[in-house]
């Protein structure tokens, strides 16, 4: 049995295509360059993501100036009128020829 082992030695039935190891060496030697490019891409992507998140946060979370609506101004104005002033204003509005034309 030992003889059989020794006869075979380290022989293997495997073969590789011609020039395989030269071509593989080229591929493997390119790994540092590929890794560097992928590292740069990862850093740029991370920086872009940070900028995007910061921009979204800035525009959504920043304090906004109080918006004053026209309807609020009108409401305040109406509340400041006395009943007599309000009646006369309504009457004026109903008889205003221009407002009537706009309604039509």
């Amino acid at each position: 049995m030992e003889k059989e082992f020794n006869n075979i030695g380290k022989k293997m039935p495997y073969t590789v295509p011609d020039g395989y190891f030269d071509a593989m060496h080229e591929k493997l030697a390119a790994i540092p360059g590929r890794q560097r490019r992928s590292l740069v891409i990862r850093w740029v992507s991370a920086a872009a993501a940070i900028v995007l998140v910061a921009s979204v946060a800035f525009f959504t979370l920043r304090p906004r100036p109080q918006e004053t609506l026209l309807s609020d101004i009108m409401l305040q104005y109406e509340q400041s009128l006395s009943d007599e002033e309000l009646d006369s204003w309504v009457e004026f509005s109903e008889n205003d020829i221009f407002l009537d034309l706009m309604d039509e």
Binding site: M12, Y14, F21, M24, H25, A29, P32, R36
Partner: peptide
Amino acid sequence: FLHKRTPGVTFEEVLKEFEQPLYWHIRR
């Protein structure tokens, strides 16, 4: 990056020394 150094070892040196032995180890 081709000359990344650890204690006196570069990637190129590791590649030269081990690419074929590792290929055969993996193939087996």
